[in-house]
Every structure is written in structure tokens, then in C-alpha cells.
């Protein structure tokens, strides 16, 4: 199967401090992959390195693009909307996305917005935490691209919003696209993940298929993940 992402020997330092070291990671086309790790493990940093908004040493290839500028066209990253004025209406944000991203598909956006019950007339400041995450998901998935990076899309939101977002991921992820979803609590998304990648001790500690973990360890994904922090998997 062809790879959508290939990272080799990636190291990243910030203010002389080593954040990520010797990362090797390849993701196949069409997968949904969970990116797990504690707060501050470097999950967001890894995503920013992939999109090219942070620069490290090593090689990162997305589809056939190697430079940071070329990679941007192949990656849709769940931006946190910090750059927008709080008084701006959702519809204005959508206009902005349409202008900036040539792969932004307005029909897809409207389908997603209908499904997630987003009202374009609302201003950003009027959005609840759940609504805001739904908007970010709709904007991110409305782009038609090869790699989607969702950075903690379920942080601090209610279970109904979470279910809607999970459902929209299943429905709108293009078959040939790969999706990397970061989270520090895996149970709710475990059934939709093909694989997990765990960032620990500044590098990739585990990259494994979820059904392989279930059949080989007999553990659920959350327990397996926690066992990595308890001094290794217990094979008794």
C-alpha cells in the first residue's frame, strides 16, 4: 500500500531543549491513526512539523511533497481559529477558508455544517466549546486532501458533540485519505482507529494496529496504552 506520510530521522529542539528525537514514522493511505501521548509529549509539535509550520531536522514527505511549502497543499490541519476576531460570523470564516485553500469544497462544508447543526450566522464568541470544535472539524474536513491532522478534537466537549464529530469523521473522510487524530484519552475513539502511534520519551514508542493489540494482548486499547507507562506490557 502506498504511503501518504514518511518521516525519517526527525529531531526538533526548542530553546536548546530536545522536544522530539529520531522520529521515524510512515502512514499508509486510507488509515485512521490515533496519536497518543501525555500532555506536553510533543503531539501538537509533531503535527506542526508535518504541516511545515515548525522546522526541525530530518525528512518529512507527504504524498510526493518534501518541502514545507509543497506539503501544505497536501495537509489539512485543524487550526484553532485563534487568528480570527471573536465578532466574526462563521460564514465569514468559511469565506476566508474558501479564498485561502483551493481544495476547500463548499458543498462538502455545507453537508458537514448541516450534519453538525452549525448556523453560519453565529459569531465566534457565541459558540460553545462543542460548537467550536464542530466548526473546526467541518472546516478541516471540507478540504479535499491526502492527510488530515486533527489535534485533540474531543478536548472538554460533551458526549453528544463527541459522537457527532466521530460520525462525521467516518462519513466524510475520503477513502484514499489518511487521518491522524491526537488525544490523550483513547477509549471513545478506539473503535474507529486502524492503528495507534504513541509519543513517549521524545520519540515514537509504539506504532501498532489496534486489532493486533486486541488479539495479541487481550487488552483494550486504553489499558494497553496505560501499560506503556507502568513499566512495559505485562505478558504473563
Amino acid at each position: 500500500m502506498p504511503n501518504v506520510l514518511a518521516i525519517q530521522g526527525l529531531t526538533y529542539k526548542r530553546n536548546q531543549k530536545l522536544i522530539l528525537k529520531n522520529i521515524d514514522l510512515t502512514l499508509e493511505t486510507g488509515k485512521i491513526v490515533g496519536l497518543l501521548g501525555e500532555n506536553g509529549a510533543g503531539k501538537t509539535t509533531l503535527m506542526r512539523l508535518i504541516t511545515g509550520s515548525a522546522q526541525g531536522s530530518g525528512d518529512i514527505m507527504v504524498s510526493d511533497a518534501t518541502t514545507a511549502t509543497a506539503r501544505k497543499a497536501h495537509v489539512s490541519f485543524s487550526e484553532q481559529l485563534h487568528g480570527f476576531n471573536k465578532n466574526v460570523k462563521i460564514s465569514r470564516v468559511v469565506d476566508f477558508y474558501q479564498t485561502v485553500y483551493s481544495d476547500f469544497d463548499l458543498n462538502r462544508y455545507h453537508e458537514l455544517a448541516d450534519f453538525l447543526q452549525l448556523n453560519g450566522e453565529l459569531k465566534l464568541l457565541a459558540l460553545s466549546k462543542g460548537m467550536r470544535e464542530k466548526l473546526i472539524i467541518a472546516l478541516t474536513l471540507a478540504r479535499q486532501t491526502d492527510l488530515y491532522l486533527l489535534d485533540e478534537p474531543f478536548g472538554g466537549i460533551d458526549s453528544m458533540s463527541r459522537k457527532k464529530i466521530i460520525s462525521s469523521i467516518i462519513q466524510w473522510k475520503p477513502d484514499n485519505a489518511t487521518m491522524l487524530i491526537s488525544d490523550h484519552y483513547v477509549t471513545e475513539i478506539a473503535p474507529i482507529l486502524d492503528e495507534i502511534v504513541v509519543v513517549k520519551d521524545q520519540t515514537i514508542a509504539v506504532h501498532q494496529k489496534t486489532d493486533t493489540i486486541r488479539s495479541e494482548s487481550g487488552m483494550d486499547i486504553e489499558d494497553y496504552y496505560e501499560s506503556l507507562y507502568a513499566g512495559g506490557v505485562d505478558h504473563d
Binding site: G30, K31, I32, K163, I166, S167, I170, Q171, K173, D175, P191, I192, L193, D194, D211
Partner: peptide
């Protein structure tokens, strides 16, 4: 396949398998 995935809240690839 995709409908089954949505109904069961699982991944399309897993349904396919």
C-alpha cells in the same frame, strides 16, 4: 460499507476486513 461503518461507529477499513 460506509453506512455500516456509520451505523456501528467503526472504521470503514474494519468493516471492509
Amino acid at each position: 460499507v460506509r453506512q455500516l461503518a456509520v451505523d456501528l461507529t467503526v472504521n470503514v477499513n474494519t468493516v471492509q476486513r
